[in-house]
Simulated assay, not measured.
Amino acid sequence: MTETIKELFAYLKNPILEEDANTNFSYRIKKFGFLLIICLATGFIISPLFVLIEELGFVDMQEHAMEDLMKKLSKPVIFVFAALIAPVFEELIFRAPLTAFKKKNQFRIAFYVFAILFGFVHITNFELTTNVLILSPILVLPQTLVGGYFGFIRVRFGLLWSIALHGSYNAILMLVSFSSY
């Protein structure tokens, strides 16, 4: 796990277009599991910021798109959308194009731009207010970071792996959120 964390953060500092030479499935599943844990831990570590933002009255976290969806749609429909449909479309938009950038500097810029765009697309989950816009870098920080993690696995293992990681991550988040309803 420690090795995966070091490899991931080294990659995020200097992303390169290089597939992992180790194609062993058990190696990849193990790395996938570690990355899934890292994704979940990232959200957990950042969550106190959201509590602080809400406690200070800057943003009402209950005014979130998930709250509306829970009122309008059934849990199975939400789950299928969040764990299957959204990851496929989002990975096709934000991660599939990465390998088209062959030059080192172009790839690096594209990697960061796609991760940031992926994060900022998620600001639409909030009711857009002045405070939400001002705090948007913090509010979408988890999505921006996991966008980088998804980019890492996409480049190293392939697009299907990033779709699977994204879907697994969303599925776990959905199951946790369903437990509070």
Rank of each mutant, 00 (worst) to 15 (best):
F114P: 00
F111H: 11
F111C: 08
M61Y: 01
L36V: 09
E19H: 10
L84Y: 08
F118T: 03
Y27R: 11
F118V: 06
H64F: 15
F126Y: 15
E7M: 05
F150I: 01
L8A: 11
L36Y: 03
F81L: 14
F25D: 10
G33N: 13
R156G: 06
G43Y: 06
P137G: 08
A41S: 15
W161R: 01
K104A: 14
P137M: 07
L92I: 10
F25G: 00
V51T: 14
I37Q: 00
A100E: 11
I53R: 02
F58I: 07
A171F: 02
Y169K: 05
A83S: 14
A115F: 01
L40K: 05
L141I: 01
F157S: 01
F94N: 06
T130K: 14
V88Q: 05
V155A: 08
G147R: 00
L135R: 07
L52K: 07
A10H: 13
I134M: 09
I38N: 01
E63D: 15
K102M: 10
M66L: 15
F114C: 02
L40T: 06
F111N: 04
K30N: 10
G57Q: 06
L12M: 15
L175V: 14
K71W: 02
D60M: 08
A115S: 14
E19L: 01
N24S: 07
K30Y: 13
S162M: 01
L160K: 11
N14L: 11
E91A: 07
R156T: 04
A86T: 14
F150Y: 13
I85C: 06
M66Y: 15
I16S: 14
M61F: 08
I46A: 01
K6G: 00
Q143M: 08
F32L: 10
I123S: 06
D68P: 00
P76G: 07
V77G: 00
G57F: 03
T144A: 10
L159R: 01
M70G: 09
I123C: 05
K30D: 07
R156C: 04
T124W: 09
L35C: 14
L133K: 10
L36G: 04
D60I: 06
I134A: 11
F150A: 01
K6M: 08
G33E: 04
I5M: 11
I138L: 15
F79T: 12
L139E: 04
K13Y: 12
L84V: 15
L73M: 11
H64M: 07
R154M: 11
F79I: 05
I163K: 00
V80N: 03
I53F: 04
F9L: 14
P87R: 03
N105F: 09
F32G: 01
A41F: 12
I123V: 15
C39V: 12
V146P: 00
S179M: 14
G148T: 02
G43W: 06
F79S: 03
F107L: 02
F34M: 10
E90K: 05
M61K: 10
Q106M: 12
S26V: 13
L135N: 03
F34D: 12
K75L: 13
I109M: 14
D20F: 02
T129P: 06
N170M: 10
E67A: 13
I116Q: 06
